[in-house]
């Protein structure tokens, strides 16, 4: 038996960690921005933010391909700067981040909405800037929810397959994540390898969900 190529594990972890960091910042920013706004237009904004959750990943991947492709609006700009995204490692990050974004956005918003707005008002009368209200009051009080969103996003990024395949393809040692390695192992009739990667995936996901359960139970009592 050939020595096992561990690269899908490292690619998957690197991709998921990076994508989760991107999602955490973007999701929090979007949730904080959205929380102080009302109006009919916001329903459309919510719809756009949540679209990656309901669309089939292949559709998301195909749209990203159109966007980042050689003739796509973003792809053209990047090409002029000397960068190609499609079929590169950053493509795996982009695909995973876009697909996991709605989970982060939804949980972060729910967590922020749960914080009593009088705390924000009290902070404002005490001279706090909006950034300080967010960083010193909103975020610490919404932290258990934000953490749950982060773990969910990471799990989702780790399991991403469809959009990744469309945008990043299957380049062993570069863009082949665990789910992609499994798919191509099955296609190549390498059942043993497929089962091994499946077990690794189950172990990681289970650890994450158990951790999530533990953290949400251990959150501090408010007020």
């Amino acid at each position: 038996m050939a020595p096992i190529d561990w690269s899908p594990l490292w690619i998957s972890l690197e991709t998921s960690v990076t994508a989760t960091l991107v999602t955490l910042v973007a999701g929090l920013a979007a949730a904080a921005w959205r929380e102080r706004r009302t109006g009919a237009a916001m329903a459309l904004v919510d719809g756009i933010f949540l679209l990656p959750l309901v669309l089939p990943p292949t559709v998301v991947g195909f749209l990203l391909l159109l966007l980042f492709g050689r003739h796509g609006p973003l792809g053209k700009v990047l090409l002029r700067l000397g960068a190609t995204v499609v079929f590169s490692w950053p493509a795996t990050v982009i695909a995973a981040a876009v697909v996991s974004f709605p989970l982060m956005y939804l949980t972060a918003r729910a967590a922020l909405e749960q914080v009593d707005s009088r705390f924000f008002e009290a902070a404002r009368t005490l001279g706090a800037s909006e950034w300080r209200v967010f960083s010193a009051i909103a975020l610490p009080l919404a932290w258990p929810g934000v953490l749950a969103g982060t773990i969910l996003s990471f799990a989702r990024a780790l399991g991403e397959f469809g959009a990744t395949l469309m945008l990043a393809g299957n380049i062993p040692g570069k863009t082949a994540t665990i789910p992609i390695a499994i798919y191509f192992a099955v296609e190549a009739d390498d059942v043993q390898r497929a089962v091994a990667w499946c077990l690794i995936d189950v172990v990681i996901s289970l650890a994450l969900l158990a951790g999530l359960y533990y953290w949400t139970r251990a959150r501090w009592v408010r007020r």
Partner: peptide, 20 residues
């Protein structure tokens, strides 16, 4: 003038002390 620049102290009905 935004609340943070008014220098008006407010005591809220249920005090709104930061719980953390």
């Amino acid at each position: 003038v935004p609340a943070r620049n008014r220098r008006v102290g407010m005591l809220f009905q249920h005090y709104a002390l930061f719980p953390h």
